[in-house]
């Protein structure tokens, strides 16, 4: 009945009955029980319909037990613990991923892909406008403008680091918090964004040149750690966390090397 072999997909009929049984459970308990039933059925080689018949027969008892145990209202504290890594992972993917991946595309990648050192040499050391790499009028300009602005602002956040990066992380936290109905997470994110923006607007802390990549590298290290060791996260999410984390560490490296200084000078000037 049970096998140690790779899980087998469920047929349409099994899935249909499983979905119907799940719908008859209290709303907050459905995800948990569907996962249990599905995992069991996927590892069974025979007796799947008998299993479902047994599950259907004991469904009233399961409903009653879930209600009495207080599991009908939503995920248990255990599930929250398992999901505890997901929210920080998303914050890093959005809040850190947007600036550092924009930086990768617009600074080092463009620098080498479009042979910027060669162009500068050919122009006798004169400036080469990074915007000249993009269409400057026509339909294509308007089509690409949103992408261009997104990448441009993201790159400036990565270059500035510090308060601007903190504000971005805070806003990402707010979005993730509201999206996942984690109100305190969202409030903390908004609080961080507000403090960071007040610091540069009201308190007068410098927005640029205050953080040569240390903030990004710190967050990048956390992202790499989550990517490598966050076993409860999905494979793609973990992969992207490592990519984003390494890109963030590259921002720090670029701030402290001659090549990086050349690239940043080209982009800013």
């Amino acid at each position: 009945m049970v096998t140690g072999a790779a899980p087998a997909a469920l047929t349409g009929g099994l899935r249909l009955v499983l979905a119907a049984l799940t719908l008859l459970l209290p709303r907050g308990f459905r995800d948990r029980q569907r996962a249990e039933w599905t995992a069991d059925l996927m590892t069974m080689t025979t007796g799947r319909w008998r299993y479902l018949f047994g599950a259907a027969r004991t469904l009233p008892a399961l409903r009653a037990a879930a209600r009495r145990a207080g599991l009908s209202r939503g995920p248990t504290a255990v599930a929250h613990t398992t999901g505890a890594l997901r929210a920080p992972a998303r914050v890093l993917l959005f809040g850190l991923g947007w600036p550092v991946l924009s930086w990768v595309l617009l600074v080092p990648l463009s620098y080498f892909l479009f042979d910027i050192p060669g162009r500068i040499a050919r122009s006798g050391g004169g400036p080469v406008d990074p915007k000249s790499l993009w269409p400057d009028d026509g339909v294509l300009f308007w089509v690409l403008l949103p992408l261009m602005l997104t990448l441009w602002f993201g790159t400036y956040v990565a270059l500035a680091g510090g308060w601007l990066l903190a504000a971005t992380i805070g806003l990402a936290g707010a979005v993730v918090g509201f999206g996942g109905r984690r109100i305190w997470f969202a409030v903390a994110g908004l609080g961080l964004a507000a403090v960071a923006l007040l610091a540069v607007t009201v308190a007068g802390f410098p927005m640029f040149n205050a953080d040569p990549g240390y903030g990004a590298a710190l967050l990048g290290t956390i992202a790499v750690g989550l990517g490598l060791f966050g076993r409860s996260l999905g494979r793609w999410q973990r992969g992207w966390l490592v990519v984003v984390g390494l890109a963030a560490v590259a921002v720090l490296a670029a701030h402290h090397t001659a090549l990086g200084a050349d690239m940043h000078a080209w982009f800013r000037d």
Binding site: G54, A55, L62, A69, T76, T81, S232
Partner: peptide, 23 residues
């Protein structure tokens, strides 16, 4: 097979079992 979950949920509700999701 398939009939054990009401029992496990009842035991968990009574504090006789603890449970966690597989990582």
């Amino acid at each position: 097979p398939g009939t054990i979950y009401p029992i496990l949920v009842a035991f968990e509700g009574a504090g006789w079992l603890s449970s966690r999701e597989e990582e």
